[in-house]
């Protein structure tokens, strides 16, 4: 079976399960929307948002809801130990990693479709003015965050305190991704839009994505053999 066929099989299975239960989608969306609303009360005064707040809040909402989605996506594989069945199947284990990663990314993409306009409205942020660059930052930032998160969530699937350990391990390593996302978005939202700066942060995110995905593909097989 080719690498891509395996990726698609795993992703399609995750989408089918999620379409049936909608459990991760609704909890992730609820969490992200709550996050934005709470910050909106804190950072919007007399109808005026604090400068650069929108960029930070958008990425916090993505990171927090992404952590929730990553944990739940692997919790499903843990409940009936289906991850073990996949690990002994004659498929490429890196393809299994990519399949899980794509599933989480698709879910977060749908959540972002709702959260980004919400942030734009609540913080009067011009997130769609340079839509292509913004889309690039969102896509690369989410990929970088989830690339590390999927690896850690898989590693922690059998750990007793996995819910606590996932953010503890994930955030320090993905800080560069979150910072690049925030600064790149802020460069697009400031009064004097700094396009070269936004492109520089986007390039950095592409670099992080390549580095994190390469490392994850390289380490997934050994870390999954207990």
């Amino acid at each position: 079976m080719t690498f891509l066929q395996t990726v698609w099989l795993v992703t399609r299975k995750d989408i089918l399960i999620e379409a049936r239960s909608r459990e991760i989608f609704f909890t992730t969306l609820f969490f992200a929307v709550s996050c934005v609303l709470v910050f909106a009360f804190g950072f919007v005064r007399e109808g005026k948002p604090v400068e650069d707040a929108a960029a930070g809040i958008l990425w916090i909402a993505i990171a927090f809801s992404g952590t929730l989605a990553l944990g739940r996506a692997f919790e499903r594989e843990r409940q009936s130990e289906t991850l073990r069945a996949l690990l002994i199947a004659p498929i490429s284990r890196p393809a299994l990693y990519v399949g899980k990663l794509v599933g989480v990314l698709m879910l977060l993409a749908v959540v972002e479709l709702i959260v980004v306009p919400l942030v734009a409205v609540m913080f009067q942020a011009a997130l769609f003015e340079h839509a292509l660059l913004m889309l690039g930052l969102l896509v690369t930032g989410t990929i970088g965050f989830c690339a590390v998160g999927t690896l850690f969530a898989a590693m922690l699937v059998r750990a007793r305190s996995r819910d606590v350990l996932l953010p503890v391990l994930l955030y320090p390593i993905t800080i560069p991704v979150i910072i690049a996302g925030v600064r790149g978005t802020a460069a697009l939202l400031q009064a004097d839009v700094d396009l070269p700066m936004a492109r520089a942060w986007l390039s950095m995110l592409v670099f992080f994505d390549v580095m994190f995905i390469t490392l994850a593909l390289w380490t997934f097989e050994p870390v999954m053999t207990e």
Partner: peptide, 16 residues
Amino acid sequence: RGRIGLLGHDLYLYPE
């Protein structure tokens, strides 16, 4: 791995 079949105590089935 393709020549091994494993039935675990946790059954390895997707309930959904």
